[in-house]
Simulated scan of single mutants.
Amino acid sequence: MKTVAFFEVCDENDLPMLATDWQDCLGELLVRQQDNGITDLRHQILGVRNYAQVYVHNESRHLVLAREREEPPSSLDESSGDILDEETQANRPWVEISVLSFIPGTNIFGLVLGAQGSPRAGALADWVNKDGELFDDLISVRPYTDDQLVGMLQDGSSEARMVSVRLDPHQIHQGNIDPNGGLYSATQQLGRDLDLGSEIDVEVILRVRGRSSSATDSTRGRIADIGRNLIGRPIRSGQVELVDFEPESVTDRELVDLVKYRMATKETVSVMDDDGHQVRIPSAINAISRAADRLQIKAD
């Protein structure tokens, strides 16, 4: 089983933009791929070579992102017990892949990671911005969320007593940091300033000590604002603890998990068909289609 997660392409400020004809965009890439070869769709990103490849399945175009592995895999000779380190050939690099498929009439795409080292959703924005030929302006990618699920936090009158955010190394180092961008940007900046390695996450927690009423309503409102700023951000984990002092309120606290409410589901992705042929990419595309139907993700 693989997780199918959904993301949305936005402008460089993480704001929604008019729906793009992604079949047309992928058609442009396919022409370049066919005329100039796959190396025309290769770019160096954060010191690692990244590739984009258009994949046609069920008469529609989809996208495969591939990242070259920094170290090739090793193999174990079971007869001798020797561990063999295989060298990557210059024209056949070892890569990890992710499969993307866009929902027609939207900027929303489903993503299936091939492995833990595969390109994340933000790699799409990194590649498109580096390439510079699909759009005149920079783009960004944010998780696609169901607005109703986070409606209680999106209400501008809400107050909170706690907000937390945790970023993994990839999220720490991606994109440009806005020094006035709130807790998300501050967490990225902290991770960069400390030059944290690939095994370290950064977590920041803001919490009102003691009773919620020990903080002013303006303070609680500001904490809620910080939580709202995290909606849709690429974070490893994040929570906001809302408070409600209305007399008719059933409960005075509500914990909103900012990752739990992302639109994602588990789907079966076959690696081999009954005849032993590789079907991983088309199976991932089919899984994204099934997940979109199940979650009712479609153009308005």
Score class of each variant (00 low, 15 high):
Asp11Trp: 01
Asp24Met: 09
Leu30Val: 01
Val31Asp: 01
Gln33Phe: 05
Thr39Cys: 02
Thr39Pro: 02
Asp40Leu: 02
Leu41Pro: 05
Gly47Lys: 13
Tyr51Ile: 02
Ala52Gly: 00
Gln53Lys: 15
Glu59Ser: 11
His62Met: 04
Ser75Met: 10
Glu78Asp: 12
Ser79Thr: 12
Ser79Val: 12
Gly81Asn: 02
Asp85Ala: 13
Val95Phe: 03
Ser98Gly: 05
Gly110Phe: 01
Leu111Asp: 01
Val112Ser: 01
Gln116Phe: 11
Leu124Phe: 15
Ala125Asn: 05
Asp126Val: 05
Phe135Asn: 05
Asp136Met: 13
Ile139Glu: 09
Arg142Asn: 10
Thr145Gly: 10
Gly151Arg: 14
Gly151Asp: 14
Ser157Asn: 13
Met162Ala: 11
Arg166Lys: 13
Asp178Trp: 06
Gly181Met: 02
Ser185Val: 07
Leu196Phe: 03
Gly197Ile: 01
Ile200Thr: 15
Val204Met: 14
Ile205Leu: 13
Leu206Glu: 09
Val208Tyr: 06
Gly210Ile: 02
Arg211Asp: 15
Asp217Ala: 13
Arg220Cys: 09
Gly221Arg: 10
Arg222Ser: 13
Arg228Val: 03
Arg228Phe: 04
Gly232Arg: 05
Ile235Phe: 00
Gln239Arg: 15
Ser249Trp: 06
Asp257Ile: 06
Leu258His: 01
Leu258Ser: 02
Arg262Phe: 04
Asp274Ser: 15
Asp275Glu: 11
Gln278Ser: 11
Gln278Glu: 14
Pro282Thr: 01
Ile285Arg: 02
Ala287Asn: 04
Ala291Thr: 01
Arg294Leu: 03
